[in-house]
């Protein structure tokens, strides 16, 4: 029998909690998903050592001796101009935060496919829990997972030599970084859940993920700055929300001046999150059925 009026949010936390339980009860999967970004920072970040290019001794061209000091100075200037910092490792490590957020958020779509395949979704749809809550709970769980994973990556980055150079008051820097990652995860989780609303095959979902993850990553400023991209890639990078999350994080944590102002970048992420969440919830009312 119904017990009075139901709050529109009833069951939301119970569903979120279910997603999280399934996640932290399987630490192996959690650790496996960290392997890729750790390899990127640990191997790529360490080996792609741009600074070492200029760490040679003095150069002697016949008739001209360039002292080491000047080479170092030029190196720093070039690096600074290209990456906004002389420390490529830190540049990459902070870029990996959005990488892990993207990958974790993408997999949120899979959970809905599994729920459908295993009959759980069918059961959910017969309870009075709002359709929107089914999606929103998955988005919230996905955000929490993403931010926890990002924190782990950040800690590992620090262990491997990430050096902060805060662009503002340190605690605020973290708040702003997490806010940008939060918005990024919000938007991507909603987007990939939306794509999975009607999907019955996890293979399709995997294919979508594989199709989109690398292009999204490489068309952003995660590995290299926009300024060094070919002209045709720049507009794509500027449309890519990863670019803005990276720019904000690098500004806050590394003091790198962003190409687009931080406020505009943040607004872009807010719009990204708001549009896809609204779309996701609206479509779930319409299309989330057996």
């Amino acid at each position: 029998m119904s017990e009075g009026r139901l709050s529109p949010f009833h069951g939301l936390w119970a569903l979120t909690n279910r997603e999280l339980k399934k996640w932290y009860k399987e630490p192996v999967i959690l650790l496996l998903s960290l392997v890729q970004p750790i390899l990127w920072i640990g191997i790529f970040g360490k080996a792609m050592n741009f600074a070492s290019m200029f760490k040679s001794a003095s150069i002697e061209i016949p008739g001209l001796t360039v002292p080491k000091q000047i080479i170092d100075e030029i190196g720093s200037l070039v690096l600074k101009q290209t990456f906004g910092t002389t420390d490529y490792f830190s540049f990459l490590a902070v870029g990996m935060l959005s990488f892990i957020v993207l990958f974790t958020s993408m997999s949120s779509g899979m959970t809905i496919v599994w729920d459908r395949r295993l009959g759980f979704l069918g059961k959910l749809l017969t309870t009075p829990v709002p359709r929107g809550s089914i999606i929103v709970s998955k988005v919230i769980a996905s955000i929490i997972k993403s931010l926890v994973q990002a924190t782990i990556i950040l800690l590992i980055g620090v262990l491997l030599g990430l050096r902060f150079s805060f662009g503002l008051f340190a605690p605020m820097a973290f708040v702003i970084t997490y806010l940008s990652l939060f918005l990024l995860s919000f938007g991507f989780s909603s987007l990939f859940l939306m794509l999975a609303l009607r999907s019955t095959r996890w293979e399709t979902q995997m294919a979508i993920m594989n199709l989109l993850n690398m292009p999204l990553l490489f068309s952003s400023n995660s590995f290299y700055p926009i300024s060094s991209m070919p002209w045709w890639l720049k507009p794509i990078a500027l449309a890519n929300p990863l670019t803005y999350a990276n720019a904000i994080s690098r500004w806050a944590l590394l003091g790198i001046t962003p190409q687009v102002s931080v406020i505009l970048s943040m607004l872009y992420l807010v719009a990204f999150a708001a549009i896809f969440t609204t779309l996701g919830i609206t479509l779930s009312w319409r299309y989330l059925s057996l």
Partner: peptide
């Protein structure tokens, strides 16, 4: 328990 919460029961 989860199903109970989905019905909005305390």
């Amino acid at each position: 328990m989860l199903i109970g919460y989905l019905y909005g029961l305390p």
